[in-house]
Amino acid sequence: MSNPKSKFPVLQLDLRLISDLVVVIVSATCGGIAFACAGQPVITGYLLAGSIIGPGGLNIISEMVQVETVAQFGVIFLLFALGLEFSTAKLRIVRAVAVLGGSLQIILFMCLCGITASLCGGKASEGVFVGVFLSMSSTAVVLKFLMERNSVNTLYGQVTVGILILQDCTVGLLFALLPILGGTSGVFQGMASMAKLLVVLLMFLTILSMLCRTCVPWFLRLMIGLSSQTNELYQLASVAFCLLVAGVL
């Protein structure tokens, strides 16, 4: 890392970040081993270890921004690895169940939380606000659990993946609905914002689908041909494509 106070770029060793990463990796390993020995998913051990050493626990980590940035790369690579596990053909089989089940889950959570808030003397809009967040599942956590159990290609695994994808696609639309619930914007403005986000999402998915059917297979075949002796270039190109799509999103 360079020193901005110096006239010339001087490389400095960030020992705090290195020590934080060591603590994170060691803690995650210990948590994963403990839960694996107990016959439980190791990702639960990772989450528990992170909550212990994080700001809500012992607050051992000092470089939170840098560590969180590294963690974002881990989530991107995890979701990219999942994309290699399932095909859209299998996902189409369960699309009706996934769309209906995912939509029903979101609507039920919003309605139940709104009714509960009204019965407790609060505003129904505040309950719906909470219901929006409760209806969202952690894609990275659920997918990691399915991959550990080798259940991604099972019927219930495909249904779960379909529901998770639906939830991820509706996050932006639900966020556009939140100002309406908070009373900070009118219904017309909120609906216009939701329509704009929906159009952008559909355009992105359409362009990405076209690229995946045309340019991406040709590009990957080219990388395979150039990587006849080593897979380094192919792996680097795959990671670059993954980060590019994530950056566009």
Rank of each mutant, 00 (worst) to 15 (best):
L48G: 00
L15C: 11
R16M: 13
I53H: 03
I33N: 01
F35S: 03
V65F: 08
T206D: 00
R92K: 14
S118P: 03
V10S: 15
L249P: 00
L220T: 06
I207L: 15
D168S: 07
A124N: 08
I25M: 11
S2E: 14
C215G: 01
G74V: 03
L177Q: 02
Q72S: 14
V216L: 15
I60M: 11
E68G: 04
V239P: 06
L177H: 04
I33W: 06
K123Q: 14
A34C: 09
R213W: 05
L143P: 10
S238C: 07
S103V: 12
C30I: 15
A140T: 07
Q105F: 06
T206E: 02
S62G: 03
V216H: 07
N150P: 05
L211C: 15
A36C: 02
Q158R: 15
L13C: 05
V70Q: 10
V245C: 04
M64V: 12
M203V: 13
F109G: 01
L84T: 01
N59C: 00
V97G: 03
P41R: 01
L243E: 05
M1A: 08
W218D: 05
M194H: 02
F188P: 00
F129D: 07
V199D: 08
R92F: 13
V94Q: 03
G54F: 12
F188T: 06
Q158H: 13
Q40A: 15
L17S: 07
L174W: 07
L201E: 09
V159F: 11
V22N: 02
T44E: 01
G45M: 02
L211E: 10
R16F: 11
T88Y: 13
I163V: 15
P9M: 04
M110T: 05
T116A: 14
L236C: 13
R95G: 10
G50I: 08
G127S: 11
F133K: 09
C120M: 11
L13N: 00
N153W: 00
T44Y: 06
L249N: 08
V23M: 11
N150D: 15
A246K: 06
A117F: 13
L166P: 06
L17P: 05
L104G: 12
V22K: 03
Q72N: 12
V128M: 14
Y46A: 05
D168V: 08
A237R: 07
R95I: 15
V248L: 14
K123W: 10
N150G: 12
V97L: 10
G32P: 08
S27Y: 09
Q167D: 09
R221F: 01
L146H: 08
G39N: 06
I165G: 02
F129L: 14
I106D: 02
G114F: 09
G54R: 02
Q158D: 09
G101D: 13
F35H: 02
G157I: 06
G114W: 06
A36Q: 02
L91I: 06
T88F: 15
G54C: 12
L201Q: 11
S2G: 05
I52P: 12
F86V: 04
S193N: 12
V70P: 08
D14K: 10
M194F: 07
S135L: 01
C37N: 09
A195C: 14
Q40L: 15
S51Y: 01
P179W: 12
L112S: 12
A237P: 13
T160S: 13
W218M: 03
L220A: 05
L233W: 07
L119M: 11
